[in-house]
């Protein structure tokens, strides 16, 4: 007898993916205009920080901070839905 691997996602997995997608859209919509612009340009378009700064009419440092704030907010909103290690560590601490 041959075992056939079933590649189709389970109903639970499918439901989770739908929920995750919904949460991602909510999290992106919750970003400020400049955060969303910075994140989309950096993450999806692969733009340089200088280009983002030019669009946001800000310094490179400020543009970098905006990208960071966007990722931080997205992470806080989405980490519980992404699975493994749902706890966000308090960073920069000593162990």
């Amino acid at each position: 007898m041959t075992l056939v691997h079933d590649a189709a996602p389970t109903p639970e997995r499918l439901a989770h993916n739908i929920e995750l997608r919904k949460q991602m859209e909510i999290a992106l919509a919750a970003l400020s205009h400049s955060e969303r612009t910075a994140f989309v340009m950096r993450h999806w378009e692969g733009c340089a920080i200088e280009e983002i700064a030019e669009v946001l009419k800000s310094s490179s440092g400020a543009a970098k901070n905006t990208v960071f704030r966007a990722v931080q907010k997205l992470r806080l909103a989405l980490q519980p839905f992404v699975g493994r290690g749902t706890q966000v560590r308090v960073m920069g601490t000593e162990s």
Binding site: L20, R21, M24, H43, V71, L74, R75, Q79, V82, G85
Partner: peptide, 12 residues
């Protein structure tokens, strides 16, 4: 964990 969130966003 950061990667996982960003990778999930890549599917959008």
């Amino acid at each position: 964990r950061i990667e996982a969130v960003l990778a999930a966003l890549d599917t959008l």
